[in-house]
Nucleic acid binder design. Structure first.
Ligand SMILES: [Zn+2]
Ligand SMILES: [Zn+2]
Ligand SMILES: [Zn+2]
Ligand SMILES: [Zn+2]
Lengths: 175, 175
DNA sequence: CTTGACATGTTATTGTATAACATACATAGG
DNA sequence: CCTATGTATGTTATACAATAACATGTCAAG
């Protein structure tokens, strides 16, 4: 489980962020679901989801938002894991490398992947007001990138597609 | 002029990068052209292209590649401008803000905009071998991003679209 | 048991970016 | 002319992000 408490109760980890996500997903259970899928995926790939790595993934899922490496590190240290930057960076890099998390370059931060296993080329929508990050599937976007790259003879291997703007909640408030 | 020397001669600034860009543009004159357009654009927008700012833009154009803020700073200092980080960051931020340069987050670097004034949503193609960066127009990509954002009620204001991969030259070499 | 591969941990350093404040310079209003 | 105001530049200092290099621990193959 991603949380130490019953998920059907008020969930501090999930409910905490005031900006409760603009994506329409089952927020109260997504963390647990994703973690289960992530475990299966790691197993299938022969990747070892060790305690630190797993805990980092859980932390990202519990927060349900983008966290800086040092934020993660702080939590790890409080739980008895190493308290030096490489501990966090190595675990985060592992997760990114294995498709279990993403790096949000605009924020110098990391977020759990909400669709592990599904071969996806995600677009990240970042609200400039509440800082909430949504991971949206974007096959068409990736296709368009590939097309323009191909026209220049460039071969795309990885891509970061990040958009800043206003989420529905914050756009309403701003009026 | 962007250069102190006659551009029809061998141009150290322009010819230097071994990887001569995979985009098909007139490299020997693009810097001068872009600078001229940038000046006109700044004028039109009421933005003041002061000596430092202009010099930073020239540096980016001369190198014709993505430069870190500290690379730029080093050159500025060598020419008698301030030698502290904010000097470079402020000029670079100004250029980005006014559409005269772009920030390549993946590289923690900045590059002159090759199409100033044209309302463009650029895609950056970054070669992992030679580090060359090409700025490709990408209206279809931006449209796709807008579409997925709209479906979630998100309003896109700015976007970073960066792709890592192999440029034509390096793909040939790698074989 | 020894070896090798890999994960974790630590120390130290490098690289990137901004806060806060001081100074210069223009230009508009009195 | 002179001062107020806005904006640009410069400096010091610090915060934030990432990696290099090395030491220790763990486990499984040979
Ligand atoms: Zn949740
Ligand atoms: Zn928001
Ligand atoms: Zn050139
Ligand atoms: Zn290349």
């Amino acid at each position: 489980m991603a949380h130490e408490h019953d998920h059907s109760d008020a969930c501090p980890g999930c409910a905490a962020p005031p900006q409760v996500a603009f994506a329409r997903h089952d927020h109260s259970h997504c963390a647990g679901d994703v973690l289960a899928r992530a475990e299966a995926l790691a197993e299938a790939q022969g990747a070892r989801l060790t305690p630190v790595r797993r805990r980092v993934l859980e932390i990202l899922l519990e927060e349900h938002r983008a966290l800086g490496a040092y934020d993660v590190l702080q939590r790890l240290a409080a739980e008895g894991f190493g308290n030096q930057p490489p501990v966090a960076y190595r675990a985060l890099d592992f997760l990114v490398e294995n498709g279990l998390a993403h790096r949000i370059r605009r924020l110098n931060a990391f977020a759990a992947c909400m669709h592990p296993g599904e071969d996806h080329a995600p677009v990240f929508l970042i609200c400039r007001e509440c800082n909430h990050v949504a991971e949206a599937p974007a096959a068409p976007v990736r296709a368009a990138v590939d097309a323009v790259a191909a026209s220049l003879g460039f071969t795309v291997e990885r891509s970061n597609i990040e958009a800043m703007g206003l989420c529905p909640a914050c756009r309403g408030t701003a009026s």
